[in-house]
Design a binder for these strands. Sequence first.
DNA 1: TGCATTTAGATATAATATAACATACAATAG
DNA 2: CTATTGTATGTTATATTATATCTAAATGCA
Lengths: 144, 144
Amino acid sequence: MTVTVENTHAPTSLNLTPSRRAVLDIVKSAGRPMKAYDILSKLQEVIKHAKPPTVYRALDYLVTNHVLHRVNNQNAFMHCQQHVECSKQQEERVSILFSCQLCGAVIENANHSLTAIIKQMTGSLGFKSDADMVECSGVCQDCR
Amino acid sequence: MTVTVENTHAPTSLNLTPSRRAVLDIVKSAGRPMKAYDILSKLQEVIKHAKPPTVYRALDYLVTNHVLHRVNNQNAFMHCQQHVECSKQQEERVSILFSCQLCGAVIENANHSLTAIIKQMTGSLGFKSDADMVECSGVCQDCR
DNA sequence: TGCATTTAGATATAATATAACATACAATAG
DNA sequence: CTATTGTATGTTATATTATATCTAAATGCA
Ligand SMILES: [Zn+2]
Ligand SMILES: [Zn+2]
Ligand SMILES: [Zn+2]
Ligand SMILES: [Zn+2]
């Protein structure tokens, strides 16, 4: 099955097999980052024989294709929030994940200034940023 | 024992007990991020009865006091590279860790533009960045 | 059809991190 | 000094996160 998804980070087509689709639906509908083994529990309601590799393989695929993001400071996975209108000029931009240490909520954001400064820093260091994503932890508005 | 360490991120004094001191020395002398269980192996050469909690407790302390940083995208720990001259105006700055996915090397860096843009973004989102640290993964100069 | 490639199933285990409880040690107030 | 409190450590066990490996099925294509 091939499906088109509007997503700044994503390619235009995905091979969404049943287990990938199910994992994507689970994470997307959660609306917040989910842990791999919580995803597994949900997945087993639909695919009984699902095992850790089932989940991690699907997550690898979806993260590689930028449909999901890995939130490193939580060991969790979230749906990409950048479903965008104006995706044309944004292919080269850097996004940032603001991750709340208290409630786990993540806000994905981006802007041109951030992109510019990161590009400038990586350039002067000879560093190639392949992730186009940075992470920042803290405390969100609701938790303050 | 109380010791003074020159470090942008660090407080002026630390309670470096033997196990904390040993963990710090191990990570510092590695010159690159180390995994907790690799630290444990080294530590056991000095403190035979060291166990995982020995290492994790020391790491917690040293990370909390900004002598070490946790590199989330590697599950590793590195010595702070910002031992600074000009620490006066830099208390509020944001640092960034550029982490190479191939060799694991990390470059810690900071500048005022980055600090400004992160502060602006967090401010407009009502997000309180407590870490003053962001992470960016990619490929370093040597690995290209 | 035959062959290569990708995806998935299944079992086991590796790697990372913490819980819980007991003990020792250090600072200080009475 | 000694009781009390807070901090740090020892020890055992276990929780959490992630991958290796081998087999088999499904898919795409010559
Ligand atoms: Zn995204
Ligand atoms: Zn929050
Ligand atoms: Zn630092
Ligand atoms: Zn490298």
